Amino acid sequence: MQRLKNKVAIITGGAGGIGMGTAQLFLNEGAKVMLVGRTESTLRKGIADLDNPNVDFCVADVSKATDTKAYLKKTMDIFGKIDILFANAGIEGPFSPIADYPEEMFDSVIAINLKGVWLGCKYGIPRMSEGGSVIITSSVAGLKGFSGLGAYTTSKHGVIGIMRVAALESAVRNIRVNTIHPGPVNTRMMRAIEKDISPDNAQKAKKGFEAGVPFGRYAEVEEIADLVLFLASDESRYITGSTYVIDGGMVAS
């Protein structure tokens, strides 16, 4: 049985590792999918890799209201409804202590990671079908502090507040809103963080992160996608306002 049959999903950060892994799983489970991202060439490559008639894309900057309205409108125009919003777009920003952190980069991280989620909820939830699901990508950095990642950590804490308020406000229409909190995942973002921490020996930084995970390894995108699928499906129909940690035991340690 296809768990998302006849469902329509939007995935922001759609061309990234978690976005693409989730898109593939959603399509396999019967959904129609709109990928949202800032770079057309990357989105086109993603569409080609997925090779499925039930996926389309929209070039948009999630930190802008006009672009947010545009990807929502395109989804409605093509697929006729919105059942699932996976607010997954995010950037890591530089690795730097607060005292040295560039103000313009702080603003950029907050705009995409935090305001982008707020705009998605503000304009997306009113357009969603009753009984729909919003899944927001936070991080273990939304639950604890990480030196050198001040803007990223701030943004990932902030989306929990958006989630909890949106969950309360959307309950009257049975729309669920939850956050997921991955630890390190084998994606481009972690490669960039490793290199930023240790430019001459990124592998050393990777081993340091792995040492902080009781399972001793990074997650794979497919493992994150499995959790997102559960929260997108009707199996989670009575779950809202919750934080879902998927980190190999990192927060517990």
Rank of each mutant, 00 (worst) to 15 (best):
P126K: 02
W118L: 14
W118Q: 14
D61I: 05
M1Y: 04
E103K: 14
E169N: 05
T187E: 10
Y218K: 00
A166G: 03
A151T: 10
D200E: 15
Y218M: 06
G132M: 03
M190H: 04
P102D: 11
L149W: 00
L231E: 09
S96G: 01
S108C: 08
D56L: 02
L35G: 06
G249S: 12
L149A: 13
K45R: 15
S170D: 01
R188K: 15
G80Y: 06
E220C: 07
G216F: 03
A211H: 06
F106G: 11
T75S: 00
G183H: 07
S41V: 08
S242Q: 12
G148S: 01
K7Y: 02
K204S: 15
A60L: 04
E223N: 07
K5A: 13
A48D: 12
H157M: 07
V109C: 06
I11E: 05
G212M: 13
F26M: 09
S96D: 10
K45Q: 15
I180A: 03
D234F: 10
K73V: 09
V228D: 07
A141C: 12
I197P: 01
I160F: 04
N186A: 00
K73H: 06
S41R: 06
G150A: 00
F86A: 14
G158P: 13
I136D: 05
I112M: 11
C121R: 06
N113D: 13
L35Q: 00
V140H: 04
Y101L: 14
E210T: 01
M128L: 12
E103N: 13
G208V: 11
K81T: 13
K45G: 14
I98Q: 04
V251F: 12
L227T: 05
N201P: 08
K69R: 15
A70R: 13
R44D: 13
I246G: 00
A205Y: 02
D67A: 02
I84C: 05
R191G: 01
V134T: 04
G183F: 02
